[in-house]
Simulated scan of single mutants.
Amino acid sequence: MSAVETVTADSSLPRRLGRAGRRLRPRAASFWAWWTQALASWLPLRVRKLFGLAHERLLLQPAGDSLRLVLEREAEARELGQVPWSGDDMLDPDPLQRLLAPRVADLPRWLVLPAGSGLRRSMVLPAAAEPRLRDMLGFEIERQTPFTAADVQYDARVTGRRDDGQLDVELVVVPSAALDTALGGLGPVSRTLTGADLQSSDGRTLGVNLLPGARRHQRTDPWLGWNLALASVAVIALAASLWQMLSNRSQAADAFEAEVSALATRARTVSVEKQRLLGLVEGMRFLQATRAGRPTTVEVLDEFSRRLPDSTHLEKLSIEDDRILLIGLSRDASSLVRVLEGSDLWRSPALTGALQPDPRTGSDRFTLTAELVVTPPPATAANRGDADAENRP
């Protein structure tokens, strides 16, 4: 690509963006106007007046040496009266301000020209021309009227829409000299005008603005600064409240998480203590079951005292786990096994080692062993759980 082509491409992009912006601006403005009008139509007239949404304007119609004042509201006109008028001799910059009520005096002021002051031409254009209707009809002034574009003030309006996508439009033209003469007759009030409209043959206004943009009075809202300040305060307050709400929720979540963590720690501690207590209970139950399954030492001694003959006396009796050991002297030691058999407290009595005669007493020293009968304790919950875990495939 050459340098000339590069410069041309770079410079065409801003132009394309500018054209796109100019196309979007009238569409956005028309959408905003339609949207606000649709919203306002749902409100009562008193509410629309309060918020400035009612379409009201003060129409000024010069009539010789007097000025006719008409209040137009929602396409309905109401005459307020006529006042003597000599615009050239007035020194007051705004004489209407002291003649009218403040609410009426602050309404947008429009000059209404007689129907014979202008020229109207009807045409049919494609619907795509609506966003730039006035600019397009500006090229039709010299073809449709006997005037040149430099000698007139003009505006355009849509009068109907057809089913085939065409628009019925009307070009309204007023000679600049006639408009300047009408403005001069208003004197200083001409500087307060928002627009200039043309009267139709039936006495109604057309809804066009023939006043040049540079001469239109830009009405400013005295409460705009306060409204912007209040809106800023409202936005800041809303942001602060949302931030505070988020902070409160975050603190509540942190507190709830800490509480849940503390409860979880307590639950784990309680679970450990419960397991420990269950272990102690099971241990005590096992010991009690084991103790209940073993004969007591008193029962064993009582059984031996009843079964052993009087010629036998014991030197030692010990019980270690389930093993019984007897050491003593007896005149009939060989028969002790037979005497001790059949007891419910022990089984398998037997002599251990050889009998040793004792010359002092004439008895035989013996050593006898037996196995204590122990009933196995019932399986505990813990033992059953361990057994199930071992048997589980």
Rank of each mutant, 00 (worst) to 15 (best):
R161T: 11
Y154M: 08
S86M: 05
V152R: 04
E282Q: 13
R365Y: 06
V173G: 02
V172K: 04
A38F: 02
N209C: 09
A182T: 03
D155G: 06
S122K: 14
R22D: 14
A267F: 06
P377A: 07
G184L: 09
T148V: 09
R323K: 12
L317Q: 11
D135K: 09
L125R: 12
L368Q: 03
L278E: 15
G81R: 08
D151C: 03
V152D: 07
D155I: 04
L280E: 15
H313E: 08
T159M: 10
A214Y: 08
A129Q: 10
H217I: 00
Q275T: 10
V4W: 06
W346N: 02
Q244I: 03
D168R: 12
E299W: 03
L325D: 05
N383T: 13
L125N: 01
L17P: 01
F286T: 08
W243I: 08
A196G: 07
G328L: 08
A63V: 10
D197G: 06
R276T: 12
A129W: 11
D92R: 11
L242M: 14
L280G: 01
T369K: 11
S41A: 15
V235K: 01
L211E: 03
G18Q: 13
P175N: 03
L336I: 03
G279A: 15
R27E: 15
Q166W: 09
R331W: 05
L107V: 04
L193H: 02
G18R: 12
V374W: 04
A255R: 14
